[in-house]
Design a binder for these strands. Structure first.
Lengths: 336, 336
DNA sequence: TCTCGTCGAGAAAGCGGTTTCTCGATCACC
DNA sequence: GGTGATCGAGAAACCGCTTTCTCGACGAGA
């Protein structure tokens, strides 16, 4: 009832069982054979004292703490959520925990946040779509082992797991092309975002492959309200001939559709709209949103697989890019 | 080029600076006054060696590691995401990190996950809407300091931060009542969910306050597809006279609306629909979804405030419930 | 000038485990 | 029965840092 007595230590267990600390440790870790009598006595003492080993002490001696950190610019982005979930589950199955570090979109803090997180964890997962490439390269070499998500980094000594946005956009343009669209508006993501740059490369490749197609670029963003706000510019593009829109991601597409509905624009009658990421809501929108599906959980799992290899001292595995899959729904239709 | 030499320790710094470890430690922590000459030498050595102290060693001696854990049943739920984000940001401003433990809806794992997480962290945030109350009470006493989110736990020695679902539902019923609705269907959440039970209490109180209102309960769930699947039951309720629907949360409402649209039901003409949580998408749905707004980020911040008090040895602060705010939008309208 | 008090730096003792090292006992084999 | 190899348990070192303890030097007061 007085002060809570401090938790029992391995020394308490050893004393209680009448054996040495070393023996208790051996019983705990089961690495060496030890007299069954001692094993039993130790286990009894552990139970009696309600002992459990201190992770801090273990960390100190082992030099690792079975924890990794994931640095993300915005936890509210469904893409990162899905990856975090997949990563967290995969890591947990190997006895690892995940610490999250939300940089709240402050690019300047990302570096220090990452370094700081790395110091208390065994490895890092870096989602830094806006960090300048040179800075990212420098950072990556400082915080190894680390896996980079969703951005290309040629010749860097780091595993990369991501989405093939170039291919995804090309497939999406193919889809629209097949529906007869020849003039498309692309609503961009954040200007400094690497995955936006990838999408733009996809746009360039697509127009190269389809010389009869032209794509106008319209400024956007990454969230619902960005899409909502982009409606005027999109309509201007339509007036200039565009019959279809590719949005940076589903949130932008959904926000855009909301505004277009308010303005009486028929989707896909007047304008076809497609998003990217295939967030859960996409299939439930009005009209159901055509999107490029991205395996978020699987990305998280792959990230963990690579990180685990690295932690175990293995090689830097090859970059893996998931090819988005077209989910053709109601929001895209034949040009009229 | 050979093996990477291990990171330098405080002993290296001491040797390099020609002073004792104790002095280096004192310079690092700045708690005692130390000769400016020594300070300068030590700082120079720290810079020269690129030294940074080992968090593991610090943890061991301090008995804490400036990390807390949040246990959630499903990271993909927008409510928990918002709370996690708010918590993570608030904790970060005090130098604390947040570890996430997703139990993947496996109620039986929650207890061990929580205990395990607690051992490696200084405190815990527990979101366990489905755990039986007695088990939760026992768990809470084992893992203190801890804050419980979103469930009532009368007389338990634990701070609670949550949402006043009872009041929220009552306000929502008031809203519908004012629009002329007298027969309402409530689409439930997961049966064992505590916040669902709270909502049902709100329903009961509301019908008590409005004897002219009747509420039919329809089984639902917590996600988009649960709402989608509940459409048939909702229509049966409508055929029995219901003119409005309250869904467990926005995802259920959105899923339901999607299916109703497919079936040609006009919202809010034929049926008014309201959700709960006011997720970002609510304001962008078709029609815009009436919802009860919940300050997710603020909840996270309050959780941290209470946890910080507890960690500092302070008292168990009073339960705080946020009263949801009605966001009346297009999906609810006057009964016709 | 001598002594007492104060200040600051170094030595050393932990924090709670793991792991090496040592050594006695047991076993197999000659 | 004697000897060397093997096995297992305890003692002690160690992981990297903080903090107490110790003690010498210096300043102030008598």
């Amino acid at each position: 009832m007085g002060e809570r007595s401090r938790a029992s230590t391995i020394a308490d267990v050893a004393a209680h069982a009448g054996v040495s600390q070393a023996s208790v440790s051996r019983v705990l870790n089961g690495k060496q054979s030890v007299d069954p009598v001692i094993v039993h006595r130790v286990q009894a003492s552990i139970a009696a004292l309600g002992y459990s080993p201190s992770p801090a002490a273990r960390s100190l001696v082992h030099g690792r703490n079975d924890t990794i950190a994931m640095v993300v610019p915005d936890l509210e982005n469904p893409l990162f959520q899905g990856i975090l979930k997949g990563l967290s589950l995969a890591a947990a199955s190997d006895g690892y925990r995940v610490l999250v570090a939300d940089t709240a979109e402050r690019v300047d803090d990302e570096e220090s946040t990452a370094v700081e997180a790395r110091q208390r964890c065994d490895a890092l997962v870096l989602c830094a779509p806006r960090m300048p490439e040179q800075r990212l390269r420098r950072l990556v070499s400082r915080v190894a082992p680390v896996v980079v998500v969703n951005r290309p980094l040629p010749d860097a000594d780091v595993p990369i797991v991501g989405v093939d946005y170039v291919r995804g956009i090309r497939d999406l343009v193919d889809h629209l092309h097949a529906l007869g669209h020849r003039s498309i508006a692309y609503v961009t993501g954040p200007v400094s975002s690497a995955s936006n740059a990838e999408r733009l490369r996809g746009v360039a490749e697509a127009t190269g492959a389809h010389p009869d197609v032209r794509v106008d670029v319209v400024p956007g963003g990454s969230r619902l309200d960005d899409g909502y706000a982009a409606a005027d510019a999109v309509l201007a593009a339509r007036d200039a001939g565009a019959t279809a829109v590719i949005a940076f991601n589903d949130l932008v597409a959904l926000g855009l559709m909301t505004r277009l509905r308010e303005l009486g624009v028929d989707v896909p009658g007047d304008l076809s709209i497609a998003g990217f990421d295939d967030v859960p809501m996409a299939g439930f929108a009005t009209p159901r949103l055509t999107s490029m599906s991205v395996p978020r959980g699987e990305i998280g799992a792959q990230v963990w697989a690579r990180l685990r290899t690295l932690i175990a001292g293995g090689p830097i595995e090859h970059t893996v890019l998931f090819r988005p899959r077209l989910e053709a729904r109601e929001s895209t239709g034949p040009v009229r």
